[in-house]
Design a protein around this nucleic acid. Sequence first.
DNA 1: TATTTGCACTTGCAAAACGCAAGCAAATTT
DNA 2: AAATTTGCTTGCGTTTTGCAAGTGCAAATA
Lengths: 134, 134
Amino acid sequence: MDIKKRSDCPISSSLDIWGDKWSLLIVRDLMFSKQCTYGDFLKSDEKIATNILAARLQMLEANGIITKQDHPESKAKVLYKLTPKGIDLLPIMIEINLWADKYFTLPTDRKEMLEEVKKDKDAFIREKITELLG
Amino acid sequence: MDIKKRSDCPISSSLDIWGDKWSLLIVRDLMFSKQCTYGDFLKSDEKIATNILAARLQMLEANGIITKQDHPESKAKVLYKLTPKGIDLLPIMIEINLWADKYFTLPTDRKEMLEEVKKDKDAFIREKITELLG
DNA sequence: TATTTGCACTTGCAAAACGCAAGCAAATTT
DNA sequence: AAATTTGCTTGCGTTTTGCAAGTGCAAATA
């Protein structure tokens, strides 16, 4: 579970943490939903395996990207949220969306969000960060 | 070698192509050097294995991120370059650098580059894209 | 109170990906 | 002609992934 840094390069160090096929999808879910239970992640379209999900959640928590919280209504549930460090991944997420918008066909709801982003990227980021922190 | 799209989500589709520990490091090398030979990639600090490098280069070429070219001075060498689609990954790359700058200690040369980015991000991107295209 | 359901994981195992070392053919250098 | 460089490929052991099933605890239901 401990990360081995391959080099001092910031790109490399970042990928050491979340450079796999699943981590950023977990972050994505938390940016759209603000908070998710274990089961919520499993409902996503990509159908992550339960053992991989558990491993990734542990990894992301160990690296300060997400935190666990007690669910206010049930002791059986756990709430996962982004930390400020995780929330700071938003600009990366947005740029990925913009890149994909140029080279793939996006679902309509995502296209609508991107229209807002294109109008005023900085404002969109500021607002979203406030929303996620609050 | 063919990619299976896990969902219609743009983040997911992007990660299907370059969402692994190595692909963006290859793109990074090409953004810093504009063009690289197979051997150049092997020289990078992260020490990618030769079979993995070959597989990734093939994958990135199949997905239109990079192209092969004859080396002007030697038939034994091959030049790899970014396509426009690959060059468009620059904003993502920059945001990763900025995120890492906040949470890691960067090497000094990278810090200098980021100073320029922080002064005027859009200008930096425009200039870099022109440089890579030309 | 007993039982079933829901939720958050864990475990077992086969399949795929990775990583190291060695090998190989064509081009270049000596 | 021989040795070296370059861009890969191949074998093979190790690690990671993915699927299915199982476990333990909380909560709802009977």
